[in-house]
Simulated scan of single mutants.
Amino acid sequence: MHYMETKLWNKAMELAELACRSVVRLPGEERYGIRLQITRAAVSVASNIAEGWTRESKSERRQFLAVAHGSLSELHTQLLLCGRLGWLPSDSLAIPLGLIDEISRMLTTLRQRSRPA
């Protein structure tokens, strides 16, 4: 199966799109601060899922999925901080935070299944 056909990658792409669209609401002075970090983390999740999916060895695949999971946690933290600071309204965070939870569960399951016995 190609990574573009997976539910996991498609959810990660949906999250990246939402995150990239939401950062335009942030204060202009944050263009090179948290705004850039959010964009990079969101893109990293989908990118590392794609790269891991195409790797030959299971250990390489696990490593890229772990990086994707780490980037997902970064994004989660950054969005929560924006909510706490009032930079993003809490109602605009509901969908991205729900996707983060769903993607995290999927990554956890996939990573557990790929661990050596």
Rank of each mutant, 00 (worst) to 15 (best):
S114P: 03
P116R: 02
L99G: 04
A50I: 12
T54K: 06
S57D: 12
A41Q: 05
P116K: 05
S92L: 06
W9D: 00
E29R: 11
C20F: 03
K7E: 05
C20M: 09
S47T: 14
E51N: 14
Y3A: 03
S57E: 08
T77C: 09
L93C: 05
S44M: 09
A41Y: 12
R40S: 13
L26D: 11
M13D: 08
R25K: 14
Q63P: 07
S44K: 07
A68K: 02
I34W: 08
R111D: 00
L72P: 15
D101G: 01
E102M: 05
G70V: 14
L97I: 03
S92W: 00
S90G: 07
V43P: 05
H69I: 03
I103P: 02
S92F: 07
N48P: 12
G33T: 13
K58V: 03
L107F: 00
R113A: 08
A50S: 14
E30D: 08
T77K: 01
R105A: 13
V43C: 13
V23S: 10
M13N: 12
Q112N: 10
G86R: 15
S57T: 15
I38D: 12
S114W: 01
S22V: 10
A50C: 10
A94F: 13
E51I: 12
A16G: 09
L65D: 08
R61H: 02
S92H: 10
T54C: 03
E74T: 05
L81H: 08
R25D: 14
P27N: 04
A50V: 13
S59R: 11
Q78F: 00
A66E: 07
R62N: 14
T109P: 00
Y3E: 02
A42C: 15
A117N: 03
Y3F: 11
L75P: 09
R21D: 10
S22Y: 05
R105V: 07
W53S: 15
L97C: 02
C20G: 04
M4D: 08
L75T: 10
E51H: 05
A117M: 08
T39N: 15
E60V: 06
R40W: 11
E60D: 14
M4R: 13
Q78L: 10
S59Y: 13
V43M: 10
P27W: 05
H2L: 03
